[in-house]
Structures are given as structure tokens and as C-alpha cells.
Amino acid sequence: MAGPVITLTDVGIRFRRNRRGRRTFKDLFAGRGRRSRPGEFWALRNVTFSVQRGEAIGVVGRNGQGKSTLLKLVTGVVLPDEGRVQVLEGVAPLIEITGGFVEDLTVRDNVFLTAGLHGMTKRQVEERFDDIIDFAEIGDFVDTPYKHLSSGMKVRIAFAVISRLEEPIILVDEVLAVGDRAFREKCYRRIEELLDGGRTLFFVSHNERDLRRFCTRGLYLDKGQLVLDGPIGDVLERYNADYGV
């Protein structure tokens, strides 16, 4: 029976401004209530929505309004303080360009490591390795330590690896803003191929043209609240009206 592949119900998550990290395990299990203590703020609060398989969702809002936190909740990197997050399919995240990559390892080793962490077998990586390197256009640097790559090259190899995973849900958080225009267009064509194949997309961007290109639905976050969930055109119109973009 068909149903949503992602469901968030009354989700809230809070962080501390004046201490590194989130609450301690002692705080977590002590049951100290839901109110924010001094130095804490709610990155997201009372967020509820669901996503059907194959939808392309654009997440919009100013910096610091909870967009990246929302994607991290979907990946399971962070857990909510309130509510429930249910994700029924695997996730391929392209959230931070250095996420999952080890600076001192070569590009080759990082491809095998990162793909393996996402569930690919060694044989599967070997079968796709040449395609990954060709897509990233960094063949001359395949045995170079990852730390010596430029930020643009790091994005290339990260996107090349993540886009070859078979996970049904793809998360993209603004990282493609780094790099040259020709490669960015190449990545965008790959995203379109994934969407044509039935993948589900979460796409965080400040570029209205890109949001309209990929997404049919939008989520507008402001001050950690879900202000509007609707057709991407309506969401962008409301966002632009609110902030004079």
C-alpha cells in the first residue's frame, strides 16, 4: 500500500548558544522538561509534513532558519527533542562537501570508504569507480590526498559518489554553489536523471531558478517554523513578499 516515505510530526530540536554541542546524555535522560534553558534556542519547532515517493521538495528560507537542520533530521545525523521523524527509505546526503571524507586518504581510498559507508559493496564500487572519476573530471588526482584538492574538486568527487548511490532519497544542501558553471550544469542534468528514475529530492537553495527547475513543491522555513507548504511557485512568491527578494 502506497504511503509517505518521510513523515515529520510536531518535530522540534534545540541547540545551545553558549556551550559546544547539544545536551548531554545526563540532560537527555533526566527528563528536565521541554522548556528552553538559558542559552538554548529552538532551531525547529512544531514542524509537521509528509513526503511521497518521487516528490521533489525545495526548502527555502533565510540563513539560520533551520533548513540544514531539517535535512540532518531526515538523514538521522541529529535526533529531535520533540515529535517524531520517520524515514522509510535510504538517504544519500550531499550536505557538506567534506562529510564522510578523510583528509589524509587519497581520492581513490575516499571513494571506496564513503561509498562503503553508504552500503555499497567493494565490487559495486569497483564497477562504478571509473564512472565516478570520469564524472568528477579529476582523473589526474585520483591518487592525491583528498586534503590537497580545491573546494571545487571536493564538491565534484562528493557529488560523483553520492549520485551513484542507489538510495531512493537524495538531499542536496547548497553545496553545488561551489565550482564552475559547466560542472554545476552537469550535476543538474544528473539530478534530473535521478528524478526521472523516481528518486525523491530535498533541495536547499537560494537560487530561485534552480528551485523552479527541479521542484514541484516547497517548504518555507522562518524562525524554525514551517510557514508554508505548497506548490513551489506559491512558496517562492510568499518568501519573496516577506523579505522583498
Rank of each mutant, 00 (worst) to 15 (best):
K154S: 11
G66S: 11
R22V: 10
I95A: 06
S151M: 15
D104W: 01
R156C: 00
V175I: 15
G233R: 14
V142Y: 01
R217L: 10
M153Q: 15
V178I: 07
Y188P: 02
I6R: 08
N110Y: 01
L226T: 05
V178G: 12
E82D: 10
I170K: 01
S50C: 03
I191N: 04
G233F: 00
K223P: 02
G152M: 07
G230P: 09
G230K: 14
V91G: 14
G233N: 15
L73D: 01
D180E: 06
I232A: 10
D104H: 12
L176K: 08
M153V: 02
G224K: 02
F112I: 12
T48K: 08
L195S: 04
F112S: 10
V11H: 09
F183M: 10
L226K: 13
T69F: 02
R156L: 12
L228R: 15
A160P: 02
G83L: 07
R84Y: 04
V227N: 12
D131K: 10
K72F: 06
F214G: 04
I57F: 13
A136M: 02
S163L: 11
V5Y: 08
D196A: 15
V60M: 14
V85N: 01
G31F: 02
Q65N: 12
R156P: 01
I57K: 13
A136E: 03
P80H: 03
E193M: 03
L149H: 00
L28D: 12
D10K: 13
G116C: 06
G76I: 07
A30N: 04
V142T: 13
D222L: 11
P4F: 09
L201Q: 07
T216E: 15
R20Y: 13
R62W: 05
D229C: 11
D210I: 10
G12H: 06
F41T: 08
I57C: 02
I157K: 12
A56V: 00
E55A: 00
E193T: 14
G152S: 14
L88D: 11
R20N: 05
V155A: 03
P93A: 03
T24G: 14
R199M: 05
L221W: 13
S68E: 08
R156A: 02
G54Q: 00
L79E: 15
R128K: 10
R217E: 11
R190A: 05
V11E: 10
R123N: 12
G233S: 04
V78G: 04
T106Y: 11
H118V: 06
L79W: 12
F15D: 02
Y239E: 06
R22P: 01
D242R: 15
G198W: 14
R23A: 13
D131P: 06
